[in-house]
């Protein structure tokens, strides 16, 4: 295992700048998830670490070695692709053995490693099958088996679960996480699914438009998002955003309504965007008036979609509701859990 250091990496395709000076330090044995919407550069960054894309500027090192200009095969990494990239004409065991056979590993050693990987992944009875005879989850395991027999310094995953159905995805998520922990493997994992990022990562790297928006543990990113984008991207249902003007202890809404924020905002004046997660908003006897626009029961909890003019707010309620669409409710915002953002730059205030 080894650490990975990406230092001021830039990637340009022609005149398009896909990555603009990205720096990430990944510690030995750490599970880091790169997350962001499509086109944010997360897959490009992963492919640059793998050596499948050249680095326009900056450098990448694995352990003590600068690998910026090394070929993929000389970087000692293993990668699991979104479509698994299993060789269709080889059996499962040949697929797993491929890297060893091109490197000239002895047959007995290879067999031992295949058997161990098959045992870890529960693939023992499938070793003689071909990939097309396997289910999606089994193919996924073969792809991982191919990676773990390599004993690489770094594991790279490129959206490995996006081709699986929701139930299997949840199961494989836990499997990958515990496998990587067991191997104490340095892992870089790309996904666009923030739930995957939250549940699997030691640290999350949130990316947008070729830059890193924030790096932190899942709860750091959730609790103190450094920008409007991160606040909106991480967490489900999405954080509520209300624009207004700070005046003393209150947020004054454009229509004149007041949201009391207490000491949280003491001394601040000016336009801000208030961010409050749906679980920090509650219905109360007194508060800001909203109308119920839609009710979404999920069973364990109920989502209330509220509106007041242009302002929309989602509330999560643990208890079931007797409200009907159109009802008028009063809402209080938990000031301690409120986030304030600059409406122009989108960055966090205080």
């Amino acid at each position: 295992m080894a650490s990975v250091n990406v230092s001021s990496a830039v990637k340009r395709f022609g005149s398009v700048e896909v990555l603009r000076s990205v720096s990430v330090d990944i510690a030995d044995g750490e599970f880091v998830v790169l997350v962001g919407p499509s086109g944010c550069g997360k897959t490009t960054l992963l492919r640059m670490v793998a050596g499948l894309e050249s680095v326009t500027a900056g450098s990448i090192s694995i352990g003590d070695t600068d690998v910026t200009d090394l070929a993929p095969k000389d970087r000692d990494i293993a990668m699991v692709f979104q479509n698994y990239a299993l060789y269709p004409h080889m059996t499962v065991s040949e697929n797993i053995a491929f890297s060893m056979s091109v490197r000239g590993v002895s047959r007995s050693e290879a067999k031992e490693k295949i058997d161990r990987a098959a045992k870890i992944l529960g693939l023992e009875q499938y070793l003689d099958r071909r990939p097309r005879e396997l289910s999606g989850g089994q193919r996924q395991r073969v792809a991982m088996g191919r990676a773990i027999v390599r004993d690489p310094k770094v594991f790279l995953f490129d959206e490995p679960l996006s081709n699986l159905d929701a139930k299997l995805r949840g199961q494989m998520r836990a499997e990958i996480k515990s496998l990587m922990r067991k191997l104490n493997a340095t892992t870089v994992y790309v996904t666009h699914d923030q739930i995957e990022a939250m549940t699997m990562a030691d640290r999350i790297v949130v990316m947008r438009n070729g830059i890193v928006e924030q790096i932190g543990t899942p709860l750091e990113v959730y609790d103190t998002p450094q920008s409007l984008f991160v606040a909106g991207f991480i967490g489900s249902p999405t954080m509520n955003f209300v624009s207004g003007r700070l005046d003393g202890n209150n947020l004054v809404l454009p229509d004149g309504g007041l949201i009391p924020l207490g000491e949280r905002v003491q001394g601040r004046v000016g336009d801000v965007v208030l961010g409050v997660r749906p679980d920090a908003v509650r219905l109360a006897e007194v508060g800001v008036e909203f109308a119920v626009r839609e009710i979404e029961p999920t069973g364990s909890e109920t989502l209330l979609l509220l509106e007041r003019g242009d302002i929309e707010v989602t509330v999560i309620q643990r208890e079931r509701t007797a409200l009907a669409v159109g009802a008028r409710v009063s809402v209080q915002f938990d000031a301690r859990a409120a986030h304030l953002f600059d409406p122009v730059t989108g960055s966090r205030l205080g």
């Binding site: 793998a50 050596g51 499948l52 070929a71 993929p72 095969k73 990494i77 293993a78 990668m79 692709f81 979104q82 479509n83 990239a85 060789y87 491929f98 890297s99 091109v102 490197r103 191919r146 390599r150």
Partner: peptide
């Protein structure tokens, strides 16, 4: 990805 995978595998 098949070819890239083989490249990473050391071929």
């Amino acid at each position: 990805s098949l070819i890239e995978s083989a490249r990473i595998d050391g071929a």
